[in-house]
Design a protein around this nucleic acid. Structure first.
Lengths: 224, 224
DNA sequence: AAAGAAAGCCCCGTTTCCGGGGCTTTTTAT
DNA sequence: ATAAAAAGCCCCGGAAACGGGGCTTTCTTT
């Protein structure tokens, strides 16, 4: 068990007071979390890190007159090798390029300003998720949204049943078709919408369902 | 392919004008759907069925002076054996007993009045789901809600990651623990909350998340 | 200090899922 | 009438998930 009970010392570096306030407001009530310092430029950040050795460092991508990414190598230089804080880039514009740039600079992850407080906590709590794994980037979401246009009615029906938590076998029973057919449909759905599993589909569906042109209630063609 | 393009003839039997209006309002705009007749008692229903041979029959469970269930055997008696309409019992009070009683009476399914219009369409569209398969009954939901109290913090964390669509492998990477451990946690979660798969958990979670005491944002113990 | 809970780890057998392919029949549109 | 699209079916191999067990280490609590 690698549970860690000590307070997580955190430093925030951003030159927008409003953002600083927002981040602080989110983090302050969290048990086990301690905001150590707030700085507004790179020089102050480096100095603060030397002084406090925080566990979490949040850096805005677009500081005045300097770029957040470039600070990361400097941090690594000026600190002992056995000191490995979790460094996150905070950005208002988020895409795959931004993410890869952050990671190549040595950041632990890249966090969009457009996420909710809850997601923000999640992102810091599980840094590995943010870095190496699926980031629901706007681009990926757009691919899936437009991919819906490629879906047939039957495929949309099956998505409805998948999102109700049913297995391929049960869906097949429900529709009076072969399990093979259901799995063929699932394969086609995954191919069109770039999913790798039913759970990915579920998670995405519920995160986006209010914006999806999927509500097939006006179409009763596939009644059986 | 057993797609059926002909209009689905429907008869509704209920003695509450408000309910009749509500059901009609939901069904009327649906393409491929035709409300044939509306009746307010069993005798009229039997007569209407003889006349129109509808595809879908909706019967209120609590008609004035008669019981909806009892009409079903009479319908079966008075119609040829090759005529198999989908008969649904509509009820305001819904539990496992109600469902089994409806099914034993010969109904295709049992529909609660407390569901949304969207769910109503789904229920009629996929009759098999309603009958033989998981009905999210209030009892089942209550088991799961109270089961949450039995979950440990680590299990709640893992639920968060599951509901983001991640595989056991990725969750393990994210938490720096063995895949075996993740699957042990999943097994314990499923046992405590009576699930059979991750997709079931996902579907349930998103249907109930606003009421669940799961938001672990005030707890940072398991930071890694 | 001892007991119990929580977390972590492992093996096994079975089922389901995923991805790749190929194929026929029905429906729809030109 | 014909072509294209949609729906349905099947096989295979590998990966993942599921359910059952057992077992150790690390907290936490009394």
């Amino acid at each position: 068990m690698n549970t860690q009970k000590a307070l997580l010392k955190t430093i925030i570096c951003d030159d927008h007071p409003l953002v600083l306030e927002g981040l602080s407001a989110i983090l302050l009530p969290i048990k086990g979390f301690e905001i150590q310092t707030i700085v507004q430029n790179g020089a102050d950040l480096l100095q603060a890190i030397q002084l406090h050795h925080p566990d979490v460092i949040l850096i805005d991508a677009h500081l005045k007159n300097e770029i957040g990414f470039d600070l990361i190598p400097k941090i690594k230089e000026q600190t002992p090798t056995n000191y490995n804080p979790n460094i996150f880039i905070i950005t208002s514009y988020m895409d795959d390029y931004m993410v890869s740039k952050a990671l190549h600079s040595g950041a632990t992850g890249c966090i969009s300003k457009s996420i909710t407080g809850e997601e923000f906590i999640q992102a810091i709590k599980f840094p590995k998720l943010n870095s190496s794994l699926t980031i629901p980037s706007n681009i990926q979401t757009e691919i899936k949204r437009s991919g819906i246009a490629l879906l047939t009615q039957r495929e949309k029906d099956i998505i409805q049943l998948i999102t109700q938590g049913h297995s391929s076998k049960k869906i097949a029973e429900c529709l009076n078709i072969s399990t093979f057919t259901v799995e063929t449909h699932k394969k086609n759905i995954y191919r069109k919408l770039k999913f790798n599993s039913a759970t990915e589909l579920l998670a995405w569906y519920f995160a986006n369902k209010d914006f999806l042109p999927l509500n097939a209630n006006d179409n009763f063609d596939s009644y059986n």
